[in-house]
Amino acid sequence: MKRFNTAVILMAFFFLFVFFAGSAQAAVPKAKLPVLTTSAGQSNDVTTVNIVLEEAGIGYDYCDVPDVDILKAGVGLADKESGPGFHAEVYTDLAKFPKGTAYKTIIFAIGASLKGMGASGLTVDTEEARLKRTIDYCKQNKVYIIAIHVGGTALRGAPGSDNERMIDAVAPLADYLIVTKESNKDGRFTKIAKAKNTPLTEVDYALDLVEIMKKVFE
């Protein structure tokens, strides 16, 4: 009988552990609109993030190289128009968030592309400096920072490489990290999340971002 009770208690503990472990993975932090999407490193992954948001039915503004002036201008991106080396798109619901409304959230899609940076007239150094300025502004103005890495091993590299420098510039300062399992194969994002106590969601595939984004902005 005693042995039976011990087994029941152990099983109960096991199920409680599985339940809470599962809910910790499922617990998705909440963020507020309006949201600005941008790139850290000018890879094409920011397009994936934008399309994921559209698929999730979330309006957003997008600028590939926003600096402090753009962030200060808020929704509508100061009516700036796209041109060579600069891209701006406004899909925020302007009836809910009129032009000039301060952004509550910013999403960085991390991934370095020399072609992308070159097209925007940036180098790895100037991109890092721009990211530092924008993140400093976000921290000072309580803009929630979400960092996403869905490029897998193709957008990872040796320590000090362009991709790792972009991760260093954004991930440790983010309020929430979302990465694919392939991107986090070496556990780099898990280490950052643990060191900074940042919530981390690891997804199997970039497609899973659609449901995550619905939950984050619900």
């Binding site: 094409n44 397009t47 399309i51 698929e55 199997d204 595939y205 970039a206 497609l207 899973d208």
Partner: peptide, 19 residues
């Protein structure tokens, strides 16, 4: 993009998007 993301998740092969 949605086609590329879907085949990766549901059919297990890669195909990225090039503009």
């Amino acid at each position: 993009t949605m086609a590329a993301l879907t085949v990766k998740a549901k059919e297990g092969f890669d195909s990225h998007v090039e503009p």
